[in-house]
Design a protein around this nucleic acid. Structure first.
Length: 121
DNA sequence: GGGCTGACCTACT
DNA sequence: CAGTAGGCCAGCC
C-alpha cells in the first residue's frame, strides 16, 4: 500500500479508480479512515471524494467498503441504521472491536496488522 | 453561474 | 477533553 503520485487533474473515473484500489488493499481485520485512503490514493486533503467514490462504487466490484470509517473511528452512517449495523457486523466478524461505539484506529491499522498477528492487541 | 449538501479532515482555540 | 473554522469536491437543484 504505497502512495501513488498524481497530477491532480485526472478525470473523475480515474480518481475513483485509485480510491477503489486503495480500499481493495485494506487487509481483513483492519480499518482506515477516509483521510488516509485519500492520502494513499494520492489525494491528500480530499477525504470527501472517498465518500463519493464509495457511494458510487459499482456493486460488481465487491469492495470491502466496511473497512472505511471516519477519523474518530466511528461508522459514518446514522447510528442504528441498517447500513451502520451491517458495517459493524462485517467488521466484528473480521475481529475488529468496538469500544463505546468507536474503533481504535491505531490498533486496527494495516500497519499494525502483523504486530497483532504475532503478539495480539 | 451560485448555493447547499454530504459515507470527511486537520488545525486551532 | 469539546467546539469552531476552513478546506475539500462531486452532484443536484
Amino acid at each position: 500500500m504505497a502512495e501513488k503520485p498524481t497530477t491532480g487533474d485526472e478525470p473523475r473515473e480515474d480518481r475513483f479508480e485509485r480510491v477503489w484500489q486503495v480500499i481493495e488493499g485494506i487487509p481483513s481485520g483492519c480499518v482506515l479512515n477516509y483521510g488516509k485512503v485519500a492520502r494513499l490514493a494520492g489525494y491528500p486533503g480530499k477525504a470527501r471524494m472517498v465518500g463519493m467514490a464509495l457511494a458510487s462504487a459499482p456493486k460488481k466490484r465487491q469492495l470491502p467498503w466496511h473497512r472505511v470509517v471516519n477519523a474518530q473511528g466511528r461508522i459514518s452512517f446514522p447510528e442504528g441504521s441498517a447500513k451502520a449495523r451491517a458495517q459493524r457486523k462485517r467488521l466484528e466478524s473480521e475481529g475488529v472491536e468496538f469500544e463505546d461505539g468507536a474503533i481504535d484506529l491505531e490498533r486496527f491499522s494495516p500497519e499494525r496488522a502483523l504486530d497483532r498477528m504475532l503478539w495480539g492487541p
